[in-house]
């Protein structure tokens, strides 16, 4: 294949899928309850891409890529799922004690090339890429993209099993369990990029209900050499955390640009 020729083209292609991730638009998955007690419970979950946190006012988050992982690693099917214009909703029955992950993950490639005098754009999975012979297109520029939008809920005592990493894109390795966050207490979250500590990435943390304030409630942090961020959520409430990393990744012996993003919602309880 041809080496990437134009960064602008790559970014333009990237923006197709990541429109919902641009600074003004925030993707999120918000459970009705983060921490639960009892033997079995049920929660309802909202998923949307919006300007304000957490008010659905832009676009529903597609449920196609949403999956729920139980503490024992099994998949939990979404129940009563529906998507409107602005918001998707679904229920999850919680029958195991421990921490569940609710996540939307997407990985793929963007391609851009000239053909018959026209600028052509394409996006798809690695398999589709090979099948369609995209990498052989003239003067093709490729960008790898991995995005994750996650949240965690815990029935009973928190467990760690759902934090096992897949080694692709940005992933969370919490030092503080996301269901164990209290206002005024220092917390730490770690991140990995393609399985290695994600050092020097920028992480934005925003307190929800921003519709009712003019500004503030936001902190921008940079991960340390171990890929950790440490901060104190001063106010109780739901928070939106967003991390992005740009770099390069090897694809068939070539280095291509890579854009990865990670979003998580969590709550800080009042002490």
């Amino acid at each position: 294949m041809t080496r990437m020729t134009g960064r602008i083209a790559a970014l333009a292609a990237t923006s197709l899928l990541l429109a919902g991730q641009a600074s003004a638009h925030r993707a999120w998955i918000l459970p009705s309850t983060f921490t639960l007690s009892g033997e079995a419970q049920r929660i309802t979950v909202d998923a949307a891409i919006s300007n304000d946190l957490f008010y659905p006012n832009h676009h529903a988050l597609s449920l196609e890529s949403v999956s729920v992982t139980a503490p024992d690693g099994s998949d939990v099917p979404l129940e009563d799922a529906a998507s409107g214009e602005y918001r998707s909703v679904f229920d999850i029955p919680l029958t195991q004690q421990g921490t569940y992950k609710i996540g939307s993950a997407g990985a793929g490639f963007f391609a851009s090339w000239e053909e018959d005098g026209e600028r052509r754009r394409w996006r798809g999975s690695a398999e589709d890429l090979a099948e369609a012979g995209i990498a052989e297109k003239p003067e093709v520029s490729l960008t790898r993209s991995v995005r994750r939008i996650e949240t965690f809920v815990t029935l009973g005592a928190p467990t760690e099993t759902v934090f096992s990493i897949e080694g692709e894109g940005l992933e969370l390795q919490p030092s503080t369990h996301p269901n164990d966050v209290f206002a005024g207490e220092e917390i730490s979250f770690g991140f990995t990029l393609d399985g290695a500590p994600a050092a020097g990435i920028e992480v934005e943390v925003v307190l929800g209900n921003d519709r009712y304030r003019d500004g503030g409630g936001m902190v921008t942090l940079t991960s340390d050499e171990e890929g950790q961020i440490t901060f104190t959520p001063e106010e109780p409430g739901p928070y939106w955390l967003s991390a992005e990393a740009e770099g390069t990744v090897m694809f068939e012996e070539s280095e291509i640009p890579s854009r990865t993003s990670y979003v998580m919602t969590f709550e800080a309880l009042p002490f």
């Binding site: 921490t35 007690s37 009892g38 005592a157 928190p158």
Partner: peptide
Amino acid sequence: DEGETWLKDLRQWWRRAGRS
């Protein structure tokens, strides 16, 4: 059978003791 549903609202107790 809903009594335990609200135990988590004793949030410090739930965190320090109840949940385990």
